[in-house]
């Protein structure tokens, strides 16, 4: 028979998961590498990423089963079992994120949240009329000490976010190689129909 119903066990991401995934990825690449940190565009992209994250988190509460937090709980023991399985060449099918991937997902979200919050705090004026208006930090301001710490935090967490993103890409490539399953495809096309 040409088609048989073998799609049950296969992983399939819904349109909202895919859309938020790639738009957040784009926002991180743009703000991390391409757009100057002092540019107004940087702020807009940052708010956009925060909005996308908020939507994805909402989806984690009320979305379909495999998009929900309950489908990929934080579990160190499950993650270490997963690694052990990988080294033995065992491949278990996961409807949602695998236990190791789940840890990465939460780490990425937490870091993005930290970057967003510190970014908003840095920017007391969300919609400055003119570029540069917001970056006029007077050196001898009382609040300057706090602002500097937050700026530092923003930069450090942003760099950590980029590092995590790189690890995430590496993990996906490695897992795809080891398991012989293309993990990227369902994130682009959803399921195989």
């Amino acid at each position: 028979m040409a088609e048989q119903g073998h799609r049950q066990g296969e992983r399939a991401w819904d349109p909202l998961v895919r859309l938020t995934h790639w738009t957040i990825a784009l926002a991180i690449v743009l703000n991390g590498f391409l757009v100057d940190g002092d540019a107004l565009t940087h702020i807009w992209i940052g708010y956009t990423a925060a909005g996308l994250l908020a939507l994805r988190l909402l989806w984690g509460l009320i979305g379909p089963e495999n998009a929900r937090f309950s489908s990929f709980p934080i579990s160190l023991s499950a993650a270490s079992r997963h690694i052990a399985g990988l080294t033995r060449g065992e491949h278990k099918e996961h409807r949602s994120h695998n236990p190791l991937g789940a840890l990465m997902v939460y780490a990425l979200w937490a870091m993005l949240l930290l970057v967003s919050v510190t970014g908003v705090m840095l920017e007391s004026e969300p919609f400055p009329e003119h570029e540069g208006e917001y970056s006029q930090h007077d050196e001898d301001d009382d609040e300057d000490q706090g602002a500097e710490i937050i700026e530092e935090l923003h930069e450090v967490s942003a760099n950590l976010l980029l590092l995590l993103a790189a690890l995430h890409v590496g993990g996906v490539v490695l897992e795809s190689r080891l398991s012989g399953r293309n993990l990227v495809r369902p994130m682009i096309f959803g399921d195989k129909s």
Binding site: T23, G51, L52, P126, F127
Partner: peptide, 17 residues
């Protein structure tokens, strides 16, 4: 999904405002 993304972004910008 596209509408939801637009709505979510609009929400964030409104909340910020």
């Amino acid at each position: 999904a596209v509408v939801l993304v637009v709505q979510a972004l609009a929400s964030v910008f409104f909340i910020a405002d």
